[in-house]
Amino acid sequence: METRIDYSKIALLTTVANFDLYEKTRPYQPAGIRKLVIDGRGGMYGLESLFYTFEKLPLNDVKWLVLADEDVLFLENRALVKIIEEMESANYTVAGVRDGGTMPNRRHNPYVPNTFFCVLDYQNISTIYSRKEIQKQQYSNPNEFTEDLKNLNVEFDVTSLYEPYYCFFLWLKRKNQRFLFLNAELLHPDTDELATKVYALDNKPLLIHTWYARAYGKNAAQTKRIDSIIDTYAPDSNDHSKEAEVYKDEFFKYKLGLRKLKKRIQNKLGKLF
C-alpha cells in the first residue's frame, strides 16, 4: 500500500549564515511545505542549531523536518516526498549523505550524515530528545557499529569526531534508530572539487550542494563558482509559498563569546599549573 504523506507535517529548516545566497536558492526549495530560517550570522550552526531547533522552535505539528543549507540548490520537488515516504514505510529516523566514504571532499565518519541536507523524523526524535544525553555521545568505540561499508568508494575514518554535531547522530544510532543514506558524487569532477550532486532514491539528481556559503559575496572566485552553478542548473521555481519564518537567538553571540573566554582562561590556567 502506498504511503501518503501529509504536506502540512513537513517543514524545511535552513540555518542561514549568508542571506544573499539564501535569497538566490530559496525559490527552488520544494513547494507546499513550511519554511523556517534560523539566523546563523551570530555563529549559530551545527550542533547549536540542532539544540535550538529542538528546544525553541514551534514545531509541535511537524512530523518530518528537512535540514538544508543555503548553498543547497534543489533540482526536483517530488523526490523529497519519495524519500519521506520511504522513511515512513521502512521506519527510518534519518536520511542524508554520509560524511565519509561518499563525497571526495568529506573523508570523515561514514556512520553519520553531513547536515547540509538531512531529513529527520522530528516527531520521533522529540519523544526521546535529551540535550544531556546527546552531549555525552561524542566518542567512538572500535567495531561499535556493524554496518557494511565495503561498497563505499571514497576514503573514510570510522573513528572520526570531526564535527561537533556528530554526537547528535551517534546518539540516535546508539538508540537503535535507522539511517537511510543517499548516493552523491562531485558535480564536475574534473574542474570543481567541491560541488556535490546528491541523488534521490531513483538515482536521479535531487539537489546540488555548492559548499562555501560563507565565502559567497566575499571571495570572488567562490562567488563566481556558486553563481555559475545556480545559473546553469536552477530548475523552474518550486516555491510559491509565503516568506519563511525567521528565528534568532538574540543572546547567542554573547553566550558564545563567554564560552570562548572561559575556554581561553581554562587553557591559560592549565598551562600555569
Rank of each mutant, 00 (worst) to 15 (best):
D190L: 10
Y45S: 06
M87R: 03
W171Q: 12
E185G: 04
Y92N: 03
R98P: 01
R78A: 04
D227W: 15
Y22F: 11
A200Y: 14
D99N: 07
S140G: 03
I125P: 00
S140N: 11
L120C: 02
G100H: 04
D202A: 08
Y162C: 01
K150E: 08
L36Q: 07
I128F: 15
V16L: 12
L12H: 00
E144M: 12
E2W: 12
R259C: 02
I125V: 02
L21R: 01
D20E: 11
E155P: 00
R26D: 14
K268F: 13
K175T: 00
K9P: 00
Q135A: 05
L36H: 11
V62A: 03
N219Y: 13
L65W: 15
W171A: 12
P110M: 06
G42M: 12
K268H: 10
T196D: 12
V62K: 12
N203M: 14
V158Q: 09
P142H: 10
L57A: 06
D202W: 04
Y254Q: 05
L206W: 14
A79F: 15
T15D: 11
Y52M: 05
I265H: 01
E193N: 07
S237D: 02
Q135I: 07
F168P: 00
A95P: 00
A221C: 06
P27W: 07
F145E: 01
L182Q: 06
Y111D: 04
Y166E: 07
L207S: 03
L57D: 02
F181V: 08
N143S: 07
N143G: 03
K268T: 10
L182Y: 13
G42W: 15
R131P: 01
V119R: 09
A200P: 01
Q266S: 11
R34E: 01
F51H: 02
K175M: 09
K268P: 00
E185W: 15
E133N: 06
F179N: 05
V62H: 10
D148C: 07
K224A: 06
N141S: 08
L186R: 08
Y162M: 09
Y52H: 06
R259M: 11
F145D: 01
K82I: 10
F179R: 03
K268M: 11
D227K: 14
K255V: 04
F54V: 04
P142N: 12
Y52N: 04
F252M: 04
R98G: 01
L258E: 11
T146M: 02
Y129C: 06
R106P: 00
E76P: 00
F252E: 01
V66H: 03
Y129L: 12
T115E: 09
L57H: 06
D239T: 13
G46K: 05
L207K: 07
N105G: 04
T14C: 10
N153V: 06
L75K: 08
F116M: 08
